[in-house]
Design a protein around this nucleic acid. Structure first.
Length: 477
RNA sequence: GGUCCCAUCGUCUAGUGGUUAGGACGCCGGCCUCUCACGCCGGUAACGGGGGUUCGAAUCCCCCUGGGAUCACCA
């Protein structure tokens, strides 16, 4: 009988959902889906001082945005206190844990002293073999870890790793004010939740022997481990806020697509031959722990941009328009989000911009003239391209455009061609002044598409304004 | 400092004893072109060092160096 594979992502809600955490979640998710197993979410909120509801929500929001859905209800450690206490009491009763009356301050000064003398800053074990209770003082509870022998594991990514038990010390499993601590909770939860594999960041490698020892003394089966390499900033230290945005939702706000972020994160520390582009389904199909690299990886924003650009370029315009709509409204670039029935207008904007923009925010910034009722002509662009000599061209073109029945990229193009014939001017001479007249600047999508998307009314109005703008300028030569 | 982990272009990676060391991002050139882009073509650039093992090492072993993580009544 083969047991069903079960994995989990277990963040602590002490801030936003970090990009590194997301990758851990993703690898767990992919591993579970690939093997037909279960993927769960557990909120590690035993530290009531630092945990917040807002952070829990941020985790849920991030997971939802990325589409990393769980198979069972979210487990919250704060609701499982009784379970942990039972385990602690059991260890106490069996003599596998003991009360320690050393105060936090004492421990800290001893640790500093040890460090100062160049000794190991370990707990010295003075309460290990029995002490008389200090009146009126609640003790912390320590795990009585074996001091001899070695603890070994076979990491699914790194191979065998072994630790001398003499290096380990007696960790506190219950604080003096009664709450259980991390190492106890993970072990109890992972055992009770029947996790078969623990996939987590390699900053947990050194916790593993302590946890294995706890599994063993509690009589639980030890799961298999896979420790993922860290994600680093450009300075090769662990990625953190000082390296810029590390919150998932910040990436949403910057105009990144979930599939781009997922694809990027998957390739950070994992490879599949020469392939770069993976949909979620492809990732599920192709992911394996063997493909995960052992070395830490530097987060590279340029490559994320390239992937995001790829997904914007190839994405369904209607779907992108929906996301674009949210961004525009959030950024205050439109007074309110387009209603469902008007989304078609936005889809047209997306269609003519999606080839050229890296993020939805960039698309928004480069599309302002589609949303503003009135544009302002950039001084430099106007001076360069809106000269008196172009007036007859603008006037002829305006007349042609006005006469158009259907206002599409094709009909607009024919109007331009007619003007080109009449004036014997190349498109290169005409397009740029028109572009400045209609957008206020020198950069836009293809002129015919842009004119068509803008619509006849706005085009004619802006051309008239541009003509007036030119006429109002003193003749300069 | 102790312990643990890691080491191929600037970055992400392919490579599992025999390759002109491959791909991708970026960067640089060219082409295309109504602007900006896209796209296409080409180029730049790496096995940290030293010892072994072997007919032959990027690949296996050891040492060094370098980087990272961790040593809490945080998780």
């Amino acid at each position: 009988m083969t047991e069903k594979l079960r994995v989990r992502f277990a963040p602590s809600p002490t801030g936003y959902l970090h990009i590194g955490g997301v990758r851990t979640a993703l690898f767990n998710y992919l591993y579970a889906r690939h093997h037909g197993g279960a993927f769960l979410l557990r909120i590690e909120d035993t530290d009531i001082q630092r945990s917040t509801e807002a952070s829990v929500q941020a985790i849920l929001d991030g997971m939802a945005w990325l589409g990393l859905d769980c198979d069972e209800p979210t487990v919250r450690q704060s609701e499982r206190n009784e379970i942990y206490q039972e385990h602690i009491e059991r260890l106490l009763a069996e003599g596998k844990a003991y009360p320690c009356y050393c105060s936090k301050e004492e421990l800290e000064s001893r640790r500093n002293e040890a460090l100062r003398q160049g000794r190991d800053p370990k707990y010295d074990g003075r309460c290990r073999d029995g002490v008389t209770p200090v009146a009126g003082q609640e003790p912390a509870i320590r795990f009585k870890a074996p001091h001899a022998g070695t603890t070994e594991m076979v990491d699914l990514i790194r191979g065998p790793i072994s630790f001398e038990n003499s290096q380990l010390d007696d960790l506190i499993i219950r604080r003096s004010f009664g709450t259980p601590t991390y190492n106890l909770c993970v072990v109890v939860d992972d055992a009770l939740m029947e996790m078969t594999h623990i996939i987590r960041g390699d900053d947990h490698i050194n916790n593993t022997p302590k946890q294995i020892l706890l599994y063993q003394t509690l009589g639980y089966e030890v799961p298999r481990y896979a420790h993922l390499p860290m994600i680093l900033g450009p300075d090769k230290t662990r990625l953190s806020k000082r390296h810029g945005a590390t919150s998932v939702m910040a990436y949403r706000e910057m105009g990144y697509l979930p599939e781009a972020l997922l694809n990027y994160l998957a390739r950070l520390g994992w490879g599949y031959g020469d392939e770069e582009i993976f949909s979620l389904d492809e990732l599920i199909e192709k992911f394996s722990l063997e493909g995960v690299s052992k070395a830490a990886a530097v987060f590279n924003p340029e490559k994320l941009d390239w992937l995001n650009h790829h997904y914007i370029k190839t994405g369904d315009p209607e779907r992108l328009a929906r996301l674009f709509n949210e961004i525009l409204a959030e950024k205050g670039m439109i007074p309110e989000a387009y209603p469902e029935e008007k989304l078609g207008d936005l889809t047209e904007v997306v269609k003519c911009q999606q080839d050229k923009r890296k993020t939805l925010v960039e698309m928004a910034e480069m599309s302002t003239y589609f949303f503003e009722s009135q544009i302002t002509i950039d001084e430099k662009a106007g001076t360069k391209f809106l000269k008196p000599g172009i007036l007859p061209v603008l006037e002829t073109l305006a007349a042609r455009l006005e006469g158009l029945e259907a206002f599409t990229a094709e009909t607009v193009q024919r109007a331009f061609e007619a003007v080109m014939d009449e004036t014997e001017m190349k498109l290169g001479k005409i397009a740029q002044p028109v572009r400045v007249a209609l957008t206020g600047g020198t950069v836009s999508p293809g002129i015919f598409e842009m004119v068509a998307v803008l619509g006849k009314a706005r085009v004619l109005e802006r051309m008239r304004s541009a003509i007036a703008w030119i006429e109002s300028r003193p003749e300069a030569d």
